[in-house]
Design a protein around this nucleic acid. Structure first.
Length: 233
DNA sequence: AAACCCGTCAACCGCTTCCTG
DNA sequence: TCAGGAAGCGGTTGACGGGTT
């Protein structure tokens, strides 16, 4: 059985595989497939089963870094910057470990943010009077980012060609009881939107409940209430 | 207006670690 | 215990957009 699966996957791999940016259709297929699997899927067979001409590895990366529910995109807050800097001092380039302590951020995003922003801020800070390090670091972190929020394909209303921009976080509510809830706006990539469904993510199984839904013809969106289960954190 | 430069970030690549039979 | 495959991880690349000349 394994052999037949493997051989069919191998023959699938011999077909021309796509590279580069993901299309809306590919994203829709991947989301639909993962949704249909209810948290139980295998990355090796995913592309074939979902009808995507990509490697399983590429599908996994796309899902984990972009399509997975609960992913935050856009500018990092000052608190997040400070957390990353502190953790990097302790852990070094262990991006996945750092990401696991920043809810909603991926290792890839943190790594990019480090190389493009934080590393430079630290270097600037170190070249000045060391006695003023703390104040300088804080003021540097408070500088407005060079990155315009609209430059992110996720938040841009312009047509960047990246369909995943249609999923983004709307609001995060952190509570002190160990659980967190996040409202997620989802431009519907599947239809119909179920009233409630569980989905396994990097931080455990998350249950999504339909909070509101609107359809004005061209623009169909659902607001989902994400409940991250305490035991999964 | 066009060419060039630079910063950003999604995606790829290859190595390592984990898991399963 | 070991080997092979799957998943995870971090470094690197390349496309793209905005700014500058």
């Amino acid at each position: 059985m394994v052999k037949s699966t493997r051989s069919s996957v191998t023959s699938f791999m011999k077909t021309k595989l796509r590279k580069g940016a993901w299309s809306l259709e590919e994203d829709q297929k991947l989301i639909a497939y993962i949704h249909s699997r209810h948290g139980n899927w295998n990355w090796v067979v995913t592309p074939k089963a979902a009808g995507i001409l990509r490697t399983g590895k590429s599908c996994r990366l796309r899902w984990l870094n972009y399509l997975r529910p609960g992913i935050k995109h856009g500018n990092f807050s000052q608190e997040e910057d400070e957390t990353i800097i502190n953790l990097h001092q302790q852990l070094g380039n262990r991006w996945s470990t750092i990401a696991s302590r920043l809810s909603g951020r991926t290792d890839n995003e943190i790594k990019n943010h480090w190389h493009t922003h934080l590393k430079n801020i630290l270097q600037e800070t170190e070249t000045d009077d060391p006695s003023e390090d703390d104040d300088l670091l804080l003021s540097n972190l408070q500088k407005p980012s060079n990155v315009n929020a609209n430059s992110s394909p996720l938040l841009s209303s312009s047509s960047s060609g990246d369909p995943a921009g249609e999923i983004y976080n709307n609001q995060t509510i952190e509570e002190n009881d160990g659980s967190s809830q996040t409202y997620v706006e989802l431009q519907c990539l599947w239809d119909p939107v179920p009233a409630s469904f569980p989905m396994e993510g990097l931080y455990g199984t998350t249950t999504y409940t339909l909070a509101s839904y609107y359809d004005d013809g061209d623009d169909v969106s659902a607001y989902l209430l994400m409940q991250q289960n305490e035991e999964s954190v």
